[in-house]
């Protein structure tokens, strides 16, 4: 698998939902199609990051073990969705 990481978000040591929050911020600022790397030691990220990527329309390219605690999540940024907001009129 060949790709270039445009930005690395280092959330090592941050507890849930810190890594997710930092990833969401980075993805919102990123170009569609670019690849973001999230470094996280949070156990919750293992299930949370794939689920969020699926729901938000981004592609989790792969998850790489950096060491026995830290994982590297590589995410390809998809098309930005418009926010769901009810029409109050």
């Amino acid at each position: 698998m060949s790709y270039q990481i445009a930005k690395t978000v280092d959330a090592v040591g941050s507890f849930c939902p810190g890594p997710l929050m930092e990833l969401v911020r980075a993805v919102k600022e990123a170009e569609t199609g670019s690849v973001i790397e999230l470094l996280s030691s949070d156990k919750g990220s293992v299930g949370e990051i794939p689920k969020w990527c699926e729901k938000a329309g981004h592609e989790l390219l792969e998850v790489v073990d950096v060491d026995d605690k830290v994982k590297s999540y590589r995410i390809k940024v998809g098309e930005k969705k418009k926010r769901r907001r009810r029409n109050k009129e």
Binding site: P17, L20, M21, V24, R84
Partner: peptide, 13 residues
């Protein structure tokens, strides 16, 4: 706040 985080990051108001 934790529940709200799950919602807001999924674009739910």
């Amino acid at each position: 706040a934790m529940i709200a985080t799950g919602a807001v990051t999924s674009d739910i108001e």
